[in-house]
Amino acid sequence: MKELDPLLHSQLRLAIMSILMNVDEADFVYLKEKTESTAGNLSVQIDKLSSTGYITVEKGFVGKKTRTVCRITERGQDAFRNYVETLKQYLNL
């Protein structure tokens, strides 16, 4: 049986990817609220996903505040689909 992608096989990273699979883009505040995570932890996991090329991160300004917007890449979508397929095999679904 295929191994589960170690980058996705983590609670928070999987949650981020699940959200981004469902929306066109989401900002940091939205991701933090939906995943119920801390800002520091979320930031680290976003960096990991971004450095692997699974998501893109765009930092901009809204007035004087920064706004970080995340989007899933095609590579990220493929990785997520493969993860779900492998998961189905593990769970005999």
Binding site: H9, S10, Q11, S18, N22, V44
Partner: peptide, 21 residues
């Protein structure tokens, strides 16, 4: 949510929960 390795069943629950949210 923390950065912990979930079981396969938990993974499925996370995906479902995030889709609903």
């Amino acid at each position: 949510m923390i950065d912990k390795q979930p079981t396969e069943r938990e993974s499925l629950e996370i995906i479902t929960s995030m889709i609903n949210r």
